[in-house]
Structures are given as C-alpha cells and as structure tokens.
Simulated assay, not measured.
Amino acid sequence: MKILVFVSLLILSKFVLAQNEVENKMFIPIIPGCENIQNPSKELTDCLEDKLSELIHQNLDKENLNRLLRNVGDKKAYTKFKFTITKEGKINNLSLVDETDMNLFLEIKKAIVKINKNYIFQPATYNGEIINFSFNLPFRYTIK
C-alpha cells in the first residue's frame, strides 16, 4: 500500500511540474508562412515582421503612394507603427510610434483592411489562454 501511495505521489508531482512548465509559456502570433518555426523564438519574430511587411507591401496602393510622395518631393518614406493582433487573429489598433511619414501610415492602414479580409493569424497565447498581442513594426517604402 505504501508503494502504491508513493508511486501515485511521484506521478502526480511530475504532472504538476509539467503543467507549470506549459502554463508559464508565452506563444506569439503565427502568420501564414511561419507555421514551421519554433514558437516562441527570435526566428519566429523575424518571420512575423518579414511576412507582415511583405503582405503590407503587396496590398499598398503604390500608384497613390508614389503620387503623394512625389508631391512632397520624397522618393523614400519610413514609418514605425504599433498594432495588436487580436484574440480573433486580426490586426487592430494601429497607431504611429514615431513622428514619421503620415502618407505612408495612412496607406498602410488601408492595406491592413485588405489583409484582414483575406487572412486570419493564429493568435498569441499565455498560460494556455488566447490573448491580444501588441507589436511594433518599422516599414520603409521607396519609389521605383
């Protein structure tokens, strides 16, 4: 009987320790194209930045942005913005982080609307619960 109680306590303690390891983990959102990268990791953060920048660039109204930049005499634009990937896997709450190019930021907001129509990201989790995840992203654009 003592052996049975000892073995039961041993198994229970391993279960509790394993549960604590899983519960204290933060997993960042996953964007399409980054599914096979270990979460969490620097590589996944880099992939999130790269893929999201790609999606934004693909969905920009480049003709309008080029016209706006030429009107103010610029060939390059830079902005840094923050946003949230919501529990529903959508991008929300865009705002400028620095005093940067407002024309580019406004075009990015339009691109995000298009991205939200076509993509749902896997949301972040913390302690096994789905959470909103805030992120900053620098973005550069050059007229070609």
Score class of each variant (00 low, 15 high):
Met1Asn: 06
Ile3Asp: 13
Leu10Tyr: 10
Leu10Ser: 12
Leu17Met: 13
Asn20Val: 11
Glu21Met: 10
Glu21His: 11
Glu21Leu: 15
Val22His: 11
Glu23Arg: 09
Met26Leu: 14
Phe27Val: 09
Ile28Tyr: 09
Pro29Thr: 06
Ile31Trp: 06
Glu35Gln: 12
Asn39Leu: 15
Asn39His: 14
Asn39Ile: 14
Asn39Trp: 12
Pro40Tyr: 05
Glu43Lys: 15
Leu44Phe: 05
Asp46Pro: 00
Glu49Pro: 06
Glu49Arg: 15
Asp50Pro: 06
Leu52Arg: 00
Ile56His: 14
Gln58Lys: 15
Gln58Val: 08
Asn59Val: 05
Leu60Ser: 08
Lys62Ile: 10
Asn64Arg: 03
Asn64Leu: 15
Leu69Pro: 04
Asp74Asn: 09
Lys75His: 08
Lys76His: 12
Lys80His: 13
Phe83Ile: 11
Thr84Gly: 03
Thr84Arg: 09
Thr84Met: 15
Lys90Ile: 01
Ile91Arg: 01
Leu94His: 04
Ser95Tyr: 12
Val97Met: 09
Glu99Thr: 14
Thr100Met: 05
Thr100Pro: 07
Phe105Gly: 04
Lys109Val: 13
Lys110His: 07
Ile112Gly: 05
Ala124Ile: 02
Tyr126Leu: 09
Asn127Ile: 03
Glu129Arg: 14
Ile131Met: 06
Asn132Ile: 07
Phe133Trp: 11
Phe135Lys: 14
Asn136Ala: 07
Pro138Ser: 08
Phe139Val: 02
Arg140Met: 07
Ile143Tyr: 06
